[in-house]
Amino acid sequence: MNKTFKRESFFGFLKNWFEERYQLKEAIERNVTKKQIPKGLSWFGCTGGLAFVAFLLQAGTGIFLVFHYIPSANEAFNSVQYVRHAIPYGWLIQKVHAVTPHFMVALVLSHMVRILFKGIYKKPRELHWVSGSLLLILTLMISYTGTFLPANGLSYWGVSTAGSEVGMPTMVTDHSVGAYQDGRAISNQTFVLIYALHIAGIPIMMSLFMSLHFLMIRRTGISEPL
C-alpha cells in the first residue's frame, strides 16, 4: 500500500512537472483525444502513414546495421555475412532491412496513384504533391543505393547492367562500374560515397521533405472524401 502510494505520487509529481512546463494535457486533448475528423475516410488513406512506418522500420534496422557494416570493397560482403551469422538475431534485422523497401516503395506508389486518380493534389494541396513526389524519387534512390552496399550478386547486377550501359544514376555508378569491372583496383571511396548517400544524404533530405509534407497536411487538413 505504501509502495503504491509512493509510485503514484512519483508519477503524479512527474506529470505535474511536465504539465507545468509544457501544458501537454491541452496539446494531447486538442490533437488526439478530443480531435474530430470527417466521417467516411478510406482505409486506403492510411498508405501514406504506413509508408512512414516502413521508413521508421528501415531507420531502426539501419541504425543497428551501421554499427557493423564496413563500407569497403574488401570488407562489405564479409561484414554483412558477419551480421547475418555471428550476431544474435542479426539475420532477422538484416533481412527485414532488405525486404522492407519492397513494401515502402509499394506503399508510396499506391499512395501517389490514389492521390493522382482522386485529384487530391488540387488547390490548396499542390505542394503536398510536390513534396510527395520528391519523396517517391528519394525512396527509389535510397533503395537503389541500398542494393549496392552488400556487394552481393544483386549489387553487381545493378552496376553491371545499368551502370555499364548508361551510368544510372549518373556519376555515382560510373565510379562503381570502374570499381567492379577493373577487378584489381576496387575503389573504397565508391563504397564510402554510396554509403554516405544511403545513410546520411538521402535520409536527411527525406526527413526534411517528410516534415514539410506532414506540416502542410496539418495546415490544410486532409482532403474531403469524394
Binding site: 555475412q81 533503395s143 552481393n152 550478386g153 553487381y156
Partner: peptide, 20 residues
C-alpha cells in the same frame, strides 16, 4: 541470393528489385 559479386556468375543469376 546472397553470394559475393563476381563477373562470372552473379550477373545472370539475380534480378534487380521489381521497382527498378
Amino acid at each position: 541470393s546472397f553470394q559475393k559479386s563476381t563477373g562470372e556468375f552473379a550477373a545472370f543469376q539475380t534480378k534487380p528489385p521489381w521497382y527498378l
